[in-house]
Amino acid sequence: MARIAGRAWKFGDDVDTDVIIPARYLYTHDPGVLAAHCLEVADPRFPAGVRPGDVVVAGRNFGCGSSREHAPRALQACGVAAVVAASFARIFFRNAVNLGLLLVESPEAVERVQPGEYIEIDGEKGLLRLSSGETIPVRFPEGAAAEVQQAGGLVEYVRSRLAARAVPAPGAGAEGTIQGE
């Protein structure tokens, strides 16, 4: 899993998909349009200020509301490398996993990270490193969600399954391993 390093943009609880990308921009899924308006309702400085590799850090229920896949796409279009949240809403979780956007669930990290702080996420070790050097253990998607993510997203996953045709469904039967969805 990738190593991520960037500045933290902090948001509160219940950041809904209308706030991530308002429906008035859903006449398109052009990355440029989505990026230009991503999270502008919550923080007008975000679309112009965000830099590739930055991390969105938010509270509980991130991505609640509409099923619009434009929300994780907008974050990706901005160059957001990962979202760290206390918890994720169900459909957003699936969409992000399917599109290969890294999600990190950690109420503790959310509490500790300061706005604008430079943080690192180490996928190999399952750690989030604060600018002080202190580390916090964090959880990543597991089970079928991890398999989809490791395949590079659901498009690649289905593509290889169609190519192989009779590959058994991975993850099926494994109890209690999936954190999201």
């Binding site: 099923s67 459909i91 969409n95 989809v148 997203g153 289905v158 469904a169 969805e181």
Partner: peptide, 19 residues
């Protein structure tokens, strides 16, 4: 409810993963 990529999978395979 699901996202568009999930729906694409369901339209393609007639199947989808569920927790």
């Amino acid at each position: 409810g699901v996202g568009s990529t999930d729906l694409a999978c369901a339209m393609a395979l007639g199947e989808l993963w569920f927790r």
